[in-house]
Design a protein around this nucleic acid. Structure first.
Lengths: 132, 132
DNA sequence: ACAGCTATTTAGAACCATTATAAACTGTAA
DNA sequence: TTACAGTTTATAATGGTTCTAAATAGCTGT
């Protein structure tokens, strides 16, 4: 299994549930955005056994902490995650709530002129809201 | 009262509760960020009567819809609002969860090169996460 | 292969911010 | 002042997320 080493190297035991969630999240042609609810449905569709909702939450948080997933900063009643962990931004379609990736090259370089003492920039995330 | 006309002009009846919330939100030297919980405490401190939590929610949403408040796009268990409705961005201190305004002039112009058919850009919001 | 230990999974309960409800109240226009 | 739509209110309901504690599974040393 291709994800066993990845998990072990992160200090996560490669359990059956985690490996199955890896398949759903990472064994795809394209990266994608999802909520826990979306992921729960995808898992139900793809695998025959059941994975508890608590495990899905635990795993997603573990993967996020290890840097295999990113949260998308957006106000919604649910948290949106992204399997695309490269540096990039998002369009947010206000009409239907859909997110679209904006590659870093689609956005000119962002120059933050102000500095905060003793702090360094961890990430810069741009949300571009779209309307009709 | 200075807020009566403002409310009437927006089609909102200038009720006692709304006027008092206006005082707390807008009769200040500086703009600020708040959650509903923060606002509830501020109101308790500043006025002697009680305003129902439901009214605080209703009013904040009404003001947001009218453009007197903005939500700050950030993942948190609570929604953050901003009384600064000018075009600007935010630093987000991961250590303590505090937000700091970044004036538009503190950020170089942002050039979104990609277009989405039939959509126009409503806003561009940048969140700069800070770590030690 | 087994024992023993810790990490993980699980169902269900708990939590808590937010929204819905429906009855009482209030601003406003005639 | 009346009538009506808009507001406020306490409280219940909702729903995403986290907690709990018991059962299970991966791992290490023997």
């Amino acid at each position: 299994m291709k994800y066993i080493e990845k998990l072990r190297n992160s200090g996560l035991r490669p359990t059956k549930q985690r490996l199955q969630i890896c398949e759903v999240l990472f064994n795809t042609e394209r990266t994608f955005h999802f909520t826990i609810n979306d992921l729960e449905r995808k898992i139900k569709d793809k695998i025959d056994n059941k994975i508890s909702l608590a495990t899905i939450y635990n795993t997603v948080h573990a993967f996020e902490k290890k840097g295999y997933l990113k949260q998308i900063p957006i106000n919604s009643n649910q948290i949106y995650f992204d399997t695309n962990i490269t540096d990039h931004h998002h369009f947010y379609n206000l009409k239907d709530g859909k997110l679209i990736d904006l590659e870093n090259s689609d956005v000119g370089p962002i120059n933050i002129k102000r500095k905060i003492d003793g702090k360094k920039i961890k990430s810069i995330e741009v949300l571009v809201k779209l309307e009709d």
